[in-house]
Computed example of a mutant assay.
Amino acid sequence: MSAFIAARLRPSLAERLADLAVQALIDEADLSPKPALVDRRGSGAHRDLDLRLMHASARALWPAFHAMADAGQSLAELGQPLRETIGRLGREGEARMLAVTGGVNTHRGAIWALGLLVTAAALEPVQAAPQQVSLRAARLARLEDRQMPAQAPSHGERVRQRYGVRGAREEARCGFPGALQHGLPQLRRSRAAGFDENHAQLDALLAIMAQLEDTCVLHRAGLEGLASMQHGARAVLQAGGSATLAGRRCLKALEHDLLALNASPGGAADLLAATLFLDRLEPMLGAPIGSL
């Protein structure tokens, strides 16, 4: 193979970041058994979602993530023009997602979270530690999108106003503490304890659920659902995690309680995808281009 052909076959930084974001969404969807969420077993608490649709939605978002990463590289400055560019690209990505899913909201929250992280990673790829990327994403999220069209408040925004919780936008503006302070440390603790990757990722999800004020759960089941999610997730971790017999019993009880309340922790799922993205980012960028 000639050097010219080899160079053309090497993925660009934007392509690699988009690949990583989409793979994080697919891996989050595939992870099983997740309490009351779509996974390999079924649709959880959802009647309009299944694994096939989640995969199709994730793949449909690749062009948006690629364009956001490309914008981060080309504009190369954390400021208002970049914020408004990725806001527009995110809305275009959401429209593409809804076209693919027939109007079902599969990944709206993930577009926001992963879009910011992809852009932040592209801005300074040599500074790819989770804390560095999250801080840049937070600074970007705090900027106003003056081009955002007027629209009716989302379910998440109405829940945020009703209950006084942080919500997805404030989570981003704070630097994704659910992922950075809870999901990622638990993922690595569980790996260090010798648990396989599936159980480590489940434990990371549970660590996020144990503390997150999940607006998806609040929308569906109010404060009762939120308390059930948080207490149940803590019980699994306190029992030794999802890899232990006691932990699996607690996980089954948690799922039973959430299904009874029709509560699905979609916000926690989005932050798990962000956790997986951050966990894999630095090793990926440290690899030679074209080696993946």
Rank of each mutant, 00 (worst) to 15 (best):
I5E: 13
A6C: 11
R8L: 15
R8T: 13
R8K: 12
L9V: 14
L9F: 15
P11K: 01
S12R: 05
S12P: 04
S12K: 09
S12E: 08
S12M: 04
L13A: 07
E15A: 13
E15C: 10
E15F: 11
R16P: 02
A18G: 05
D19V: 07
L20I: 10
L20C: 04
A21L: 02
A21M: 00
V22R: 00
Q23A: 03
A24R: 03
A24M: 03
I26P: 02
I26F: 03
D30V: 11
L31T: 04
L31P: 07
S32C: 13
V38G: 06
R40E: 04
R41M: 06
R41W: 10
S43P: 03
S43L: 03
A45S: 04
A45D: 01
A45R: 01
H46Q: 01
D48M: 05
L49W: 01
L49R: 01
D50H: 01
D50M: 03
L51A: 01
R52C: 14
M54Q: 15
A56E: 08
A56G: 01
S57T: 04
R59H: 14
A60Y: 11
A60E: 07
A60W: 11
P63L: 05
P63D: 02
P63C: 06
P63I: 09
P63N: 02
A64I: 14
F65P: 00
H66Q: 13
H66V: 07
H66R: 14
H66G: 06
A67T: 09
M68P: 00
M68N: 01
M68G: 02
A69R: 00
D70G: 00
D70C: 04
D70V: 12
A71N: 03
A71C: 03
G72R: 14
Q73H: 13
Q73K: 13
Q73M: 15
S74Y: 08
A76L: 00
E77A: 15
L78I: 08
Q80P: 04
P81Q: 02
L82K: 04
R83D: 00
E84M: 14
E84C: 15
G87T: 13
G87A: 07
R88F: 15
R88L: 15
R88C: 14
R88Y: 15
L89D: 08
L89P: 05
L89T: 06
L89V: 10
G90A: 07
G90Q: 06
E94W: 05
E94F: 05
E94H: 02
R96F: 04
L98P: 05
L98V: 11
A99C: 02
A99K: 05
V100N: 04
T101M: 07
T101Y: 09
G103N: 11
N105R: 05
N105L: 06
N105G: 07
T106H: 10
T106N: 06
T106M: 13
H107Q: 14
H107C: 09
R108Q: 02
A110Q: 04
I111S: 12
I111V: 15
W112R: 05
W112H: 13
W112T: 05
L114F: 12
